[in-house]
Write a protein that binds this DNA or RNA. Structure first.
Length: 466
DNA sequence: TTTTGAGTTGTTCGA
DNA sequence: GTCGAACAACTCAAA
C-alpha cells in the first residue's frame, strides 16, 4: 500500500468493490481512500432520466455504503457540480488525487475533461472489457460493422482476470456527507433489488445453468431465458470483465454443443454492448442524428395520439402492448420485445425513433445512451448495421414465433387473460360470441388496432425509399 | 489501388 | 404446411 496520502475514489458507474480498477488503483496510491458519489443535478434532472432508475441507483448506493461499512469505511455523498464538489473535497480532506472509471457518453467525457483540467483526476478502464481505442482497425479507425468488430475483440488477449474485492480495512476519513438514508426509496414493483451482492448472485446463477439454453431461449418472451443483468451492468454492480469471465468459464465447462453455443451467444451479446459503447465513443453525434447521413431526411409522422397509445400499451397489437406495459410496470423489457415495440413505433406508426429512444431512457432501469441509441438506430435502420430497408417486423408473426402460447401477452395485458391461444396475437379476428364469452370485447375491453399493419408496411417502405 | 465477400435479430409470395 | 427466392443496392473490411 502507498504512503500516508489520501485519495478520492469518485464513483459513477462502478457501484462495486470487486474488480474495481478505480478503487484498486486509488488504494495503491494512498493509505486513506474516500469513496464519494456526487449527485449531479444535471444528470438527475435531465429529460433522459428515469425516476425509477434514479431510485435503483440510490438503492445501489445504500448497498455499497453498507458493504463499505463492513470494512470500516462508508460512502460519502455530496450534491452539486462535480468540479466544485471535488475541489471542496480535496481541500477539506487534503487528498492529493482522484480516481474514477472512464465513461463513453459525451456528457461524461466532457465533465471528466473539465475536472481533469483543474484537478488531479486519473481515469481507469472498466466500463467495457477493452478500452475503445484498442478495438479499432489496424489504422486506428473505428469499426462500424459488428462482425469484424467481434473478430477484433476475439483477437485481443482475453480480458485480465477480475480483481478480487480488497480484503483490507479502509480508514474512515473525517469529511462531511449527506445522509444516505434521506435518498428517496423505490415505490411499487421491484423485480431488481439493487447492489453488488445481488448482481454477483444473479451472474453466478445465470452462468451456472440458464446460460446453457440461452441460444434457444433468449428470444422467447414467455420464458426467463435471458440473464436480466442489464440494470446491474448499467451501474457496474457487476463488471463487464466479470461477466465475460463467467461466460468463458461456461464455454469451457459446457459438455455439449448446445450449452457451448448458449455461452458463446451470451458472450457475443456482451460484445454487442462493447460495440455500441465504442460507436458512441467515436461517434457522439449518433445521440442526436442518424448514423447514416442518407437517412436523416425521412419524413416522420406527427402523431401524439399514436405515440401515447404506444407508450401506454394501447395499440391493439397484443405483443406490442405487453412489451410497453412490462416496461412501465417493471422498468425492464425483454430484448425481443424491445425490438418489436421499437419496430412498431418506427415502422408501423412512422414516428421518429428519437421519441422512442427518449421514452425508453425515461423508463428503463438499464437505460444508458450507448446501448439504447444503438438499439433504436438498429431498429430504425439508420444505424451501423446495414439493415435491409424491408426488414419490418410483423407484430402478429413475432408474437406467434416468440410467444407461441401467448403467455407473455396474458401476463401483461390482463384483459386478454382468457383469450384462446389461436386469437391471442390477433384478437380482432375473434368471433363475437367468443369475445363475449371470454369477457374481452374488442373496441371495448381491449382496443381495436390503431393502425393496419399491411398499409403501414407499404407506407414505411415508401417513406424510406424517399 | 482494386477487388471481393459479407452484412444480428425479417416478411411475403408463389411453387 | 414448408421451402426458396425476392425484396436494392451499398458500404465496409480485408485481401
Amino acid at each position: 500500500m502507498g504512503d500516508l496520502s489520501t485519495a478520492i475514489w469518485w464513483i459513477r458507474r462502478d457501484l462495486r468493490l470487486s474488480d474495481n480498477q478505480a478503487l484498486t488503483t486509488a488504494m495503491g496510491h494512498a493509505s486513506v481512500v474516500i469513496p464519494v458519489f456526487i449527485l449531479d443535478p444535471k444528470l438527475l434532472n435531465s429529460p433522459q432520466t428515469a425516476q425509477n432508475r434514479v431510485a435503483f441507483l440510490f438503492e445501489g448506493l445504500e448497498a455499497l455504503d453498507s458493504d463499505l461499512r463492513k470494512r470500516g469505511s462508508a460512502l460519502f455523498l455530496r450534491k452539486g457540480n462535480p468540479l466544485e464538489v471535488l475541489s471542496n473535497l480535496l481541500r477539506e480532506s487534503e487528498a492529493t488525487s482522484i480516481f474514477a472509471q472512464a465513461d463513453v457518453s459525451p456528457y461524461a467525457r466532457q465533465r471528466d475533461e473539465g475536472v481533469r483540467r483543474e484537478l488531479p483526476l486519473t481515469l481507469t478502464p472498466g466500463i467495457t472489457t477493452h478500452s475503445p481505442e484498442l478495438l479499432t482497425k489496424p489504422d486506428g479507425s473505428p469499426y462500424t460493422v459488428f462482425t469484424p468488430f467481434a473478430r477484433k475483440w476475439h483477437s485481443l488477449p482475453f480480458p485480465d482476470k477480475p480483481l478480487p474485492a480488497p480484503d483490507w480495512r479502509l480508514e474512515l476519513p473525517q469529511v462531511a456527507s449527506l445522509n444516505i438514508l434521506d435518498l428517496p426509496r423505490r415505490m411499487g414493483m421491484n423485480n431488481f433489488p439493487a447492489g453488488e451482492a445481488e448482481a454477483q448472485r444473479r451472474l453466478e446463477a445465470f452462468t451456472d445453468s440458464d446460460i446453457n439454453h440461452y441460444a434457444q431461449a433468449r428470444d422467447r418472451m414467455d420464458l426467463d431465458g435471458t440473464s436480466q443483468l442489464s440494470p446491474y451492468m448499467r451501474f457496474g454492480m457487476v463488471s463487464a470483465r466479470q461477466a465475460a469471465w463467467a461466460a468463458r468459464e461456461a464455454v469451457v465447462r459446457a459438455n455439449d454443443s448446445i450449452a457451448r453455443m448458449g455461452a458463446e451467444t451470451w458472450l457475443n451479446e456482451l460484445i454487442w454492448r462493447e460495440f455500441y459503447a465504442t460507436i458512441l465513443d467515436h461517434f457522439p453525434a449518433v445521440l442526436s442524428t442518424a448514423f447514416k447521413p442518407e437517412l436523416r431526411s425521412i419524413h416522420w409522422r406527427d402523431d401524439p395520439a399514436g405515440f401515447t397509445a404506444w407508450a401506454e400499451g394501447r395499440t391493439g397489437y397484443p405483443v406490442v402492448d405487453a412489451a410497453m406495459r412490462q416496461l412501465n410496470a417493471t422498468g425492464w423489457m425483454h430484448n425481443r420485445a424491445r425490438m418489436i415495440a421499437a419496430s412498431f413505433l418506427v415502422k408501423d406508426l412512422l414516428i421518429d425513433w428519437r421519441f422512442g429512444e427518449r421514452y425508453f431512457m425515461q423508463h428503463l432501469l438499464d437505460g444508458e445512451p450507448a446501448s439504447n441509441n444503438g438499439g433504436w438506430q438498429w431498429t430504425a435502420g439508420t444505424g451501423t448495421d446495414s439493415a435491409p430497408y424491408f426488414r419490418v417486423f410483423n407484430p402478429v408473426l413475432q408474437g406467434k414465433k416468440f410467444d407461441p402460447h401467448g403467455n407473455y401477452v396474458r401476463r401483461w395485458v390482463t384483459e386478454l387473460g382468457n383469450v384462446p391461444d389461436e386469437y391471442i396475437h390477433m384478437p380482432w379476428l375473434m368471433p363475437g360470441d367468443i369475445q363475449a364469452r371470454v369477457g374481452c370485447v374488442i373496441g371495448k375491453n381491449y382496443p381495436s388496432s390503431i393502425v393496419d399493419h399491411v398499409m403501414a408496411r407499404k407506407r414505411v417502405l415508401e417513406a424510406y425509399r424517399r
